Simulated assay, not measured.
Amino acid sequence: MISDEQLTAVVETVLRLLEEGVTLGELSMERIAREAGVGKATVYRRWPGKEALMLDVMRSLEHAGPELAGKSVRDDLVTLLETLRRRGLAKRSSAVLRTALAQIKAHPELWQEYHEKVVKGRREAVHAVLRRGVAAGEIRPDLDVELMGDLIVSPMLSRAMFHERAELPEDLPGKIVDAVLEGVRPR
């Protein structure tokens, strides 16, 4: 069994290496164990391979979704985007996800599992708010909820993930949501 201290040491080591620009291809279980100050057998007892370890590393960066007030579609969407904005400001989260995205073709099972465990829940939260907006008459019913979700979330993800030095000002979530809602309101 791996202790909590050893688990933390291994995860922190991987995060540090990724922040330093080490790619998944350059990471080895041996290097991780050595730099974390634990035995290789200790690492393999917890993770059968690098992909399983990376999934736990990515999960370590996740936080519970925000509480939504449920009063305003706009306010709930801004709250969801603010969570992404703050995550994009965190160098550690961005480094891990940029590395994962860069390696997606070499490790599609890692991306698939991350998508199932993390991305899917976030998308559903946005879709639920949008469906509520359609039901309340705040959003046109003839629009595809998934497409609307992509229109709202994609600008924040693009800035946070693909433009390493892009600014993520505090008012960005509101600007994005307002721009999209203006186009999806009933006429």
Rank of each mutant, 00 (worst) to 15 (best):
residue 88 G to R: 08
residue 180 V to L: 03
residue 24 L to H: 06
residue 154 S to E: 10
residue 89 L to A: 06
residue 163 H to V: 12
residue 50 K to R: 13
residue 95 A to I: 12
residue 28 S to I: 04
residue 108 P to H: 10
residue 50 K to L: 15
residue 41 A to R: 12
residue 155 P to G: 04
residue 33 A to N: 05
residue 82 E to R: 08
residue 35 E to M: 05
residue 160 A to P: 00
residue 64 A to E: 15
residue 2 I to E: 12
residue 21 G to C: 03
residue 144 D to P: 03
residue 22 V to Q: 11
residue 109 E to M: 02
residue 81 L to A: 02
residue 16 R to K: 12
residue 94 S to N: 12
residue 111 W to I: 14
residue 161 M to R: 01
residue 87 R to D: 15
residue 103 Q to M: 11
residue 169 P to F: 00
residue 182 E to H: 14
residue 117 K to I: 02
residue 60 S to H: 09
residue 32 I to Q: 02
residue 182 E to S: 13
residue 7 L to S: 12
residue 101 L to H: 14
residue 28 S to K: 06
residue 125 A to V: 03
residue 19 E to S: 03
residue 21 G to R: 03
residue 14 V to A: 09
residue 87 R to H: 11
residue 168 L to M: 05
residue 169 P to S: 04
residue 134 V to K: 14
residue 136 A to Y: 00
residue 22 V to I: 10
residue 82 E to H: 04
residue 87 R to L: 11
residue 174 G to S: 04
residue 78 V to E: 13
residue 86 R to V: 06
residue 120 K to Y: 06
residue 20 E to N: 06
residue 24 L to S: 01
residue 136 A to Q: 11
residue 94 S to I: 11
residue 43 V to Q: 02
residue 13 T to H: 05
residue 2 I to N: 04
residue 121 G to F: 13
residue 124 E to R: 14
residue 177 V to W: 00
residue 122 R to D: 04
residue 121 G to I: 02
residue 177 V to T: 07
residue 2 I to M: 15
residue 25 G to T: 12
residue 132 R to T: 09
residue 54 M to K: 01
residue 76 D to M: 09
residue 33 A to W: 04
residue 151 L to H: 01
residue 47 W to Y: 13
residue 126 V to W: 01
residue 87 R to K: 09
residue 127 H to A: 08
residue 177 V to A: 05
residue 150 D to T: 07
residue 170 E to Y: 01
residue 146 E to D: 11
residue 122 R to M: 03
residue 132 R to Q: 13
residue 64 A to Y: 02
residue 178 D to W: 04
residue 120 K to L: 03
residue 107 H to Y: 13
residue 122 R to P: 00
residue 130 L to N: 10
residue 148 M to I: 15
residue 110 L to K: 03
residue 73 V to I: 10
residue 35 E to G: 01
residue 174 G to C: 00
residue 95 A to C: 13
residue 49 G to R: 09
residue 154 S to K: 10
residue 135 A to E: 15
residue 6 Q to G: 04
residue 131 R to Q: 05
residue 23 T to Y: 05
residue 139 I to A: 10
residue 9 A to V: 10
residue 126 V to I: 12
residue 32 I to V: 13
residue 123 R to M: 07
residue 185 R to Q: 10
residue 15 L to A: 01
residue 138 E to T: 07
residue 11 V to W: 08
residue 184 V to I: 10
residue 65 G to S: 11
residue 15 L to P: 01
residue 95 A to K: 11
residue 130 L to C: 07
residue 83 T to P: 00
residue 134 V to N: 06
residue 158 S to G: 12
residue 9 A to D: 14
residue 24 L to T: 06
residue 46 R to Q: 13
residue 130 L to I: 15
residue 177 V to Q: 05
residue 11 V to P: 07
residue 68 L to W: 13
residue 39 G to P: 01
residue 46 R to D: 01
residue 121 G to P: 11
residue 143 L to K: 04
residue 27 L to Q: 10
residue 179 A to Y: 02
residue 15 L to R: 13
residue 150 D to G: 04
residue 20 E to D: 14
residue 187 R to Y: 00
residue 10 V to R: 00
residue 43 V to Y: 00
residue 45 R to E: 11
residue 84 L to K: 07
residue 10 V to D: 03
residue 9 A to P: 09
residue 171 D to M: 00
